[in-house]
C-alpha cells in the first residue's frame, strides 16, 4: 500500500473519532446559532472529504503507474524512512520514561538519567564521559532553571522520602 493511501485512511479515522467525540459536547442555553459543536462538525466533514480525495488520488495514481508499466517509486514506500521509525520511537520512550520518573525521582536525578540514557541510546561510547556529562548537565540545568530562573521543579517523592 502506498504512503498517501495509508495517510488518507489515518485522516479518515481521525475525522471519524473526532466526529464521534462531538457527541460528548453538552448543549448550552448560552449557545449561539452555530453552537459549540458547529465548527467541530464542519471540521470533521472537511477532514473526511480531504481524506477521501487523497485516498482516491493515491489509488488512481498507483493504477495509472502500473498500467503504464513505468516506475512506481514515487508512490511507494520510503524504506529508509521506515527503517528509522523504531529508533525514533525509542527516543520518544526515553522521554516518556522521564515524564513518569520526574514526580518520583525529582528533577536533578531525572535530568541526569535522561541525558545519560539519550547519549547511550544515540551511540556514545561507553566511558566515564556519559555519567560525567549527565551529572554536569543536571547540575547546569538545575542551576539555570531552579536557581537562576526560580522555576519550581519537582523535588521527587522518593528523593524527599529518602532524605527525610
Amino acid at each position: 500500500m502506498n504512503r498517501d493511501l495509508i495517510a488518507g485512511a489515518v485522516l479518515l479515522a481521525i475525522a471519524g473519532a473526532y466526529y464521534v467525540s462531538i457527541g460528548t459536547i453538552a448543549d448550552s442555553t448560552l449557545s449561539d446559532e452555530v453552537g459549540a459543536a458547529g465548527l467541530p462538525l464542519a471540521l470533521a466533514g472537511l477532514l473526511a472529504l480531504i481524506a477521501l480525495v487523497m485516498m482516491a488520488r493515491a489509488v488512481l495514481a498507483t493504477r495509472a503507474a502500473r498500467r503504464a508499466g513505468g516506475p512506481v517509486a514515487a508512490v511507494e514506500d520510503d524504506e529508509e524512512g521506515d527503517a528509522s521509525v523504531p529508533r525514533a520511537l525509542g527516543l520518544l520512550l526515553i522521554g516518556a520514561a522521564y515524564v513518569v520518573l520526574l514526580p518520583y525521582a525529582g528533577y536533578v536525578l531525572s535530568v541526569a538519567l535522561l541525558i545519560a540514557a539519550v547519549a547511550f541510546y544515540e551511540g556514545a561510547a561507553r566511558s566515564w564521559v556519559i555519567p560525567a556529562a549527565a551529572i554536569g548537565g543536571a547540575a547546569l540545568y538545575w542551576a539555570i532553571f531552579v536557581k537562576l530562573l526560580g522555576v519550581h521543579q519537582p523535588a521527587g517523592i522518593l528523593v524527599q522520602g529518602w532524605l527525610s
Binding site: 526515553i94 522521554g95 535530568v111 535522561l114 539519550v118 547519549a119 551511540g123 556529562a133 532553571f145 530562573l149
Partner: peptide, 17 residues
Amino acid sequence: PYRSGFIFALILSGLYT
C-alpha cells in the same frame, strides 16, 4: 549523542516551566 541528550533535557525542562 551528547548534543541530543542536552537538547532533549532543555526541551522538557523548559516545557515544564
